[in-house]
Structures are given as C-alpha cells and as structure tokens.
Design a protein around this nucleic acid. Structure first.
Lengths: 224, 224
DNA sequence: ATAATGCTTCGATGAGGAATGAACTATGCG
DNA sequence: CGCATAGTTCATTCCTCATCGAAGCATTAT
C-alpha cells in the first residue's frame, strides 16, 4: 500500500463531468458566480452549489464574496497547471475526431459559445480590438481601454453600465487554442451580429453562418 | 456547456484510490506486473485486473507481454507529468502530513520522476545549468544553448540526436514547487548518475540516495 | 499428457455519490 | 416593510462502479 499525497482525492474532484466543466470554465482566469458555472456545467443550481462546496473543501477554488455575489476562481497557478496537464493528456489520448465534416468546418469559423461568439472570426476580432487599443490584455485578463466607451457607444453598445457579470472575459477557444472575447461585451457583440442579421444560427447547431454582406459589415466594424 | 478534450474521463481514471496507487507505483519508471500492482494498491487480483484494463482503455498505460508475464507501464512522459502535477496539488492542499518521516526526507532531496531526477538536487541542478548558460529558460519551456552540445558531449551525453521526444522539458517538482529538468536530457543524466553508481535507488521507493563520493562527483559535474 | 502459475472474465453484491425539487437564508431594491 | 434575486441545505431517488469469489484461458514446468 502506498502513502503520500492523496492524489485520488484531488483527481476524483476533477473526475466528475460537471466539476470538470466548471474548472475548464475557470481556466480563463476570471472568477465566475455559481449560476454562471451551473450554466457552463449544464446542471441545476443546487447541483452546482454542491459541486462548488466540494471543490472548495478540496482546496481547488477560492471564494470572493461581493454583496450577494459569490465569485469562484481557481485557487492558484499550481491548480491551473494541473488542469492544463490533464487537458493535455485528454487531448492526446482522446478520440481524434475522425474527420471534420462540413458542419465542423463552419463551427471552426464561427460558433456560439454560451452567449458570445467563438471560432476563428472571434479570435481575430479580439486580436484586432487589442491591436486598436480598445481592449487591454493583462496576463489572462482583459480590461476596457479608456477609448473603448465612446467607440462601442458609436456602434450602439453600452459598456458603461455595471452589470453583475464582468464586461470582458477571455475564453479559450478549443478549435483555435487561443482566447476570444466573452463577458457582457462579447454577448452584446453577438447580439448585434444577430440583430443586424449579419449572420444566422445554424439549426440545431452552435455554428454561426455569416452572409456575404454581413461578413463585410462585421469586418468593417470589428476587423478594420 | 463546454466542449473539447474529455478531461473528466482522464481525471476519473486517476480518481480511484486503487488506480491512483497503481499509477503512483509506476511513477518509479519500471513496469510492473498485475500481481505486483494489486499488492501496491491493496486489492485482489481480479479487481486490479479490472482497473488495469480501464487504464489501458483510457490510454494511460502501455502493456508489454513477455511469456506469461504482462508488464504494465506508464504510457509516456506526458502521463507522468500529469501525475506529478496532481501529486503537487494534493501535497500542497492536502492535510500537511503530521511529520515527515525519514523516507520522506530522502524523497525531498532526490527521487525518480518516471525517467529523470526530481527533488532538491534536481531543482538545484537545473538552476545551475541555466546560470551557466548551458540551458535557456524561456517562459515555461527550456531550450539548449549553443554551448550545451560540447559540454554534455564531454561527459558522455549526446544531445545532438533528434529523438521524437523533446530533449528538454520543465517538470514541476511537487516538493520544492519549482521546475526540474525532464526530457531526454533529464533521462540521460539520471542514467549517468545510476551508471556511475553515484547514487542507488532505495528499495520499494522512488527515493534516490547519493553516496558521499557520488554526491561530490555529481556536484562537481553538474553544480560546479 | 498433467500440473502449476499468472492473469482475465463473469456474476452478484453493496456502497458512494450525483441529481433534483422544495424549503430555507441572505443580500439588495423601492 | 415586502418583493426579487442569488445561493445553500435538505431529503429522496437513482444509478454507476468498485469489490470479491469462482470459473475460464493461456503459458510454462514436469
């Protein structure tokens, strides 16, 4: 019989699909609320709450209470490194997708990620917004630059309001393996894309398909 | 809902105490039979066999059949790195062991990590190699400096050959919480240490114990 | 051959834990 | 104060999966 650090205890915490999804969501580096994490994991709020207390007890998470909001975040870089290591193994032994079909191709270009845009388009957009100094990338976090308010106001997006959810969030794109923009700003931009009918959602899929005209408009506004 | 690599599947494989013990035992680097692993894990042979087939199916182990013996080993350095990362988290959040026994002290100084050296000695060695500008630390990666080839050749280690595995890799040390050297170079150095009989492996443990003479030789070559 | 060893498969049992709705607590707003 | 939102706790149901004994294969020894 072996002794030493209880690795089974830690691994089994990550070994539940709901908890694994929560931890993956937190790999963005931003703390999230219990409801957001419940959504990410696809479970009810009580279930999420139960998982979160287990993760807390296991020392994998930190908790910051602000008013009636409770923000959960990864306990530290060491935990993040562990998740990364597990993800690496899972990706390398995982079922290499047999062949990306046409739907998958569309998914890689643009798709919905919960409430914001993901895929190549989304990654390019975030890069461009940072280039134009409208957003500031700080380590794994993203902040609004001073110039952002007026710029986004001009295209009908208000970034001044203080909602319960962070305005900007980095979300790791699983197809491109780089970050795209989440948070309320990311959500507002997706709303605009759909409201302006620049693109439509594929039926029963997360894919987002731009029309030729819509793509031009999108590029003019966000990739110029 | 998240997508991507199935990290829960991998983590849950490690999340069972019996399987975790088996994997820990295999971190010693030597392949073991099912009976030996059953003993390590403290379960019956049928139970162990069942666990082993799950680990195989998950791609975490390799199997080498020799006659009526079947030797199980870790599937590769990536898997070993993952176990090490989980061990690190478990050690830091876990109930700080009441009192580190003598074996633990030896483990902290020097131990085998799959196929290379870990512990205080290993961390000090990497620091020194970087100081001497034989290795270049870049972010989380490690590269060979131009001067490396001739230096290592002089002590009988060839870093020119292009293997499929990286020559240098950083591996986070769970006891010191800093990186040590993995990769083919790390493995070659451990080989040399054991071949020169500077140190011997503790029986039934991952600890590596240097002899007084061996330590001097090691320090002269790698810590000078 | 027959026996012995090493290991896997099968079948039955049992315990842990993941899930949810409903009830409860806490904070914020008008 | 009363209402709404955010979150936790509770009790219950359900199901997966770890476990072991017994039996079945496969390889080596005699």
């Amino acid at each position: 019989m072996r002794e030493g650090p209880d690795i089974a205890r830690i691994a089994s915490l990550v070994g539940d699909p709901a908890r694994a999804n929560m931890l993956s969501a937190l790999m963005g580096g931003t703390a999230l609320t219990a409801s957001e994490l419940a959504l990410e994991a696809g479970v009810s709020l009580p279930t999420a709450s139960s998982h979160l207390s287990k993760l807390m007890e296991g020392g994998l998470l930190t908790l910051a209470s602000q008013g009636r909001h409770r923000y959960y975040g990864l306990a530290g870089p060491q935990v993040a490194g562990m998740i990364e290591a597990i993800t690496g193994v899972a990706a390398s032994v995982g079922p290499q997708r047999v062949r990306p079909g046409p739907r998958d191709a569309a998914m890689r270009v643009a798709r919905v990620c919960y409430d914001h845009l993901a895929g190549e388009q989304a990654v390019a957009m975030l890069d461009r917004l940072v280039d134009k100094q409208l957003l500031l990338r700080e380590d794994k976090e993203i902040r609004l630059a001073p110039a952002a308010a007026s710029h986004f106001a001009a295209i009908g997006i208000d970034v001044q309001a203080k909602p319960r959810r962070p305005v900007c969030r980095a979300c790791l794109d699983w197809s491109v393996r780089r970050s795209h923009l989440a948070g309320t700003l990311g959500a507002a931009i997706l709303d605009k894309i759909l409201a302006e009918k620049w693109a439509r959602r594929e039926k029963d899929s997360r894919a987002v398909v731009f029309s030729p005209v819509g793509r031009q408009a999108f590029e003019k506004v966000f990739l110029a």
